[in-house]
């Protein structure tokens, strides 16, 4: 049996029972959480972060079971959150950062820095090395490093991502890097590419879980097109940032 995160529905802001009565996510699965601003996405993530036990305003019950089926108590070690920030407070090189994080979790050795930098480099265009200083990383590099670090080094089995802005990384690949390392990823976002990147999407309304949709065949074909637009915007950004001019050939 795989690790599992289970969310049992409570009530929306009007006190009506949530239409979606429950969701279970297995290790390696991701769930996109979508809905207008104020629809309850952040509260949904907060319920997971705190492993709500019917004691939050929503009344939801969130439980996490490990591979042996044992239910975990409330512990900060279960849920990792991807910071909305794209900078570090630590003043060190990537290698010191990775070694310190791994050592703090009792995982010495194993060349964490090189593996983390290599994985981060698959997510963003500008490569970093273990010698790169954290404070010189671009927003995209920092975000890529944070994702690679959660995937490789952090022990937390559940990752929450709230409204990741477009920091110049391959978002679709970022989610698959996390789930590919066995994480359960829950992503609150307005970004169509990210919403469609998950096999299921939860639609929030008025504080409640309103609909749960599985990505159908046509969704997937549209995802490819939307991801193409997204990549085009990133390329255009790079062109303009280099001080070059946009040419109409760009669209051919």
């Amino acid at each position: 049996m795989l690790n599992r995160l289970e969310i049992a529905g409570g009530a929306d802001r009007a006190g009506r029972p949530e239409e979606i009565r429950g969701i279970a996510l297995k290790a390696g699965e991701s769930l996109a959480v979508a809905g207008p601003t104020g629809s309850g996405k952040s509260e949904f993530l907060a319920d997971i972060e705190q492993l709500a036990a019917g004691d939050t305003p929503s009344g939801r019950i969130v439980s996490y079971r490990n591979a042996k089926g044992e239910m975990a108590g409330r512990s900060p070690a279960i849920v990792a959150t991807l910071s909305q920030r794209t900078n570090f407070i630590m003043d060190a090189r990537v290698e010191e950062f990775a070694a310190l994080h791994a050592a703090s979790l009792g995982k010495p050795g194993r060349d964490w820095a090189q593996r983390t930098a290599d994985l981060a480099n698959t997510l963003c265009g500008e490569p970093m090395t273990p010698e790169s200083p954290l404070q010189r990383l671009s927003g995209g590099q920092a975000r890529a490093l944070m994702i690679a670090d959660i995937a490789l080094i952090s022990d937390a089995p559940v990752v929450l991502i709230d409204e990741v802005e477009n920091a110049g990384i391959d978002k679709h690949l970022a989610v698959s890097v996390l789930t590919g390392h066995g994480k359960i990823a829950v992503i609150a976002t307005h970004d169509p590419v990210l919403i469609l990147s998950s096999p299921r999407r939860l639609i929030m309304a008025e504080g409640g879980m309103r609909r749960l949709l599985a990505a159908a065949g046509e969704d997937r074909r549209c995802l490819d097109r939307l991801a193409g637009y997204d990549a085009a915007l990133l390329r255009a950004r790079d062109i303009l940032r280099r001080g070059e001019e946009m040419r109409e050939e760009f669209f051919r």
Partner: peptide, 12 residues
């Protein structure tokens, strides 16, 4: 929420 997951874990 103002630091990375790694920094949170190192501080903890």
């Amino acid at each position: 929420d103002l630091v990375s997951q790694a920094e949170r874990e190192v501080i903890s």
